[in-house]
Computed example of a mutant assay.
Amino acid sequence: MTITNVEDRRMLDFARMWAPYGGPQPDEILVHFGMPPTRFYQNITRILRTAAPGQIPVAERQLLYTVSARYCAADGSSRRRRRVEPVPGGRTR
Rank of each mutant, 00 (worst) to 15 (best):
P37V: 14
E85W: 02
I47N: 01
V31H: 07
D8H: 10
T45H: 10
E7V: 05
N43G: 02
R70M: 01
P86G: 11
V58Y: 07
W18N: 11
W18E: 08
R79M: 14
R61N: 04
N5H: 05
I44D: 00
V87D: 09
V31N: 08
E60P: 12
Y65G: 15
A51I: 01
S68E: 11
E85L: 04
L48T: 04
G89T: 09
I29S: 08
I3W: 12
P57K: 06
A15N: 06
D8W: 12
Y71Q: 00
G90H: 01
T66K: 04
R46W: 11
G89P: 08
L12C: 05
M35H: 07
V87T: 09
G90Q: 06
P37G: 06
L48P: 04
R46A: 02
I44C: 08
E85T: 13
Y65V: 13
I47R: 09
M1R: 09
A19W: 07
F40Q: 00
G76W: 08
V67E: 06
S68F: 02
V31C: 00
Y71M: 10
A69M: 01
I56V: 15
Q25N: 07
T66S: 15
C72P: 07
R9L: 11
N43A: 00
G54V: 08
S77P: 04
R10G: 03
P86W: 00
S77C: 09
T92I: 07
L64Q: 00
Q42S: 13
A73N: 14
T38A: 09
A73Y: 01
R82K: 10
I3M: 06
I44N: 01
Q62S: 07
S77K: 09
